[in-house]
């Protein structure tokens, strides 16, 4: 075998580190996940698609995807604002705010779910005020989106923040000095440069939201065809001892999030190459 698999490098430890990485990855992630795929293959192709195409499953996919998409979009807008503030804003307690960004990572999802539901339920101060304005959050698709924003926001902030910090301000100054308006500078110069990390944050938030369970079930209302998310349907199938059905939905959900992640890594690689050549 004279196939060149690796570019020559003076550094040692390639075999060891790659070997261990692949071994551990297989043990903890790949072998267990393959169980999922095998189990769903019990259904056969027609059975698999029949499960996936059931109106209630399709409806749950629709709710999950729409909410996750909306949540990721809102997370991007909010996340870029907060990242901008953290990098360039002048505020005495900025460090404290910075430390709080990761809170949703660390808080158990069930706790966030309960807290968000308590916050937005119609009998709470905020939920009541919103209901007075005609906005219902808890037990509606909006509630699902809110929970997903909570989960997704840190991903966007943490993706954009370092890129923003490294952004070369000379470019902006040049644009401004050439007579571009502040808005034009932002839109034409800064945003394109931030596009790769924004995209990466968006996709991470999106794929995380797709699978979210703990924080969503409390606030969702869980009505079939309306506010039932895909991961709840997996649990429901599971509790009816329908393993094949549960794994089929799981595989479909996983394939879609995987597609999203592959896409972002591809775009990032492209973008890095592009920026590197620029």
């Amino acid at each position: 075998m004279k196939l060149k698999l690796k570019e020559t490098s003076a550094l040692p430890g390639f075999g060891l580190s790659l070997g261990y990485t692949v071994f551990y990855l297989s043990l903890i992630v790949l072998v267990p996940l393959s169980a999922l795929v095998f189990r769903s293959s019990e259904l056969g192709f027609s059975g698999f698609f029949e499960t996936i195409r059931h109106p209630r499953v399709l409806a749950s996919f629709q709710v999950t995807f729409l909410s996750a998409f909306k949540a990721a979009l809102v997370s991007v807008v909010f996340g870029v604002t907060v990242a901008w503030f953290l990098v360039r804003g002048r505020f005495p307690l900025k460090r404290l705010v910075d430390a709080l960004v990761d809170l949703p990572f660390a808080l158990p999802t069930a706790v966030s779910g309960i807290a968000l539901t308590a916050l937005f339920a119609p009998n709470s101060t905020m939920g009541g005020a919103l209901a007075g304005l005609g906005v219902k959050v808890a037990f509606t698709p909006t509630g699902i989106t809110v929970a997903m924003i909570f989960i997704g926001l840190p991903f966007v902030i943490r993706s954009v923040q370092p890129a923003l910090a490294d952004l070369n301000t000379e470019l902006e100054e040049a644009a401004l000095s050439l007579g571009a308006s502040r808005f034009q500078t932002l839109w034409r110069v800064v945003l394109p440069l931030l596009a790769p990390p924004i995209l990466s944050g968006f996709t991470l938030a999106f794929s995380r939201a797709l699978g979210e369970y703990g924080s969503v079930v409390f606030i969702a209302g869980n009505m079939p065809m309306k506010t039932e998310v895909a991961s709840l349907l997996i649990i429901t199938k599971l509790e009816q001892f329908d393993y094949a059905g549960a794994t089929a939905i799981a595989v479909a959900l996983l394939s879609l999030s995987l597609l999203a992640i592959l896409l972002i890594n591809l775009i990032q690689t492209r973008a890095t190459r592009y920026l590197g050549n620029a």
């Binding site: 698999l5 690796k6 570019e7 490098s9 550094l11 390639f14 790659l18 990485t21 692949v22 990855l25 992630v29 790949l30 267990p32 996940l33 169980a35 999922l36 189990r39 999802t109 991470l204 794929s207 995380r208 797709l210 699978g211 979210e212 369970y213 703990g214 895909a230 991961s231 997996i234 649990i235 599971l238 393993y243 549960a246 794994t247 799981a250 959900l253 996983l254 999030s257 995987l258 999203a260 992640i261 592959l262 890594n265 591809l266 690689t269």
Partner: peptide, 30 residues
């Protein structure tokens, strides 16, 4: 290092991010 399959490996490392926690439990039951 630069090697064949590097970006695939990178995606596989990210994989658990994309897996619903419910599914993460389920696979060990399976």
């Amino acid at each position: 290092f630069r090697f064949k399959g590097r970006s695939l490996l990178l995606s596989l490392v990210d994989l658990p991010f994309a897996v619903s926690p419910v599914v993460a439990g389920l696979i060990f039951i399976l």
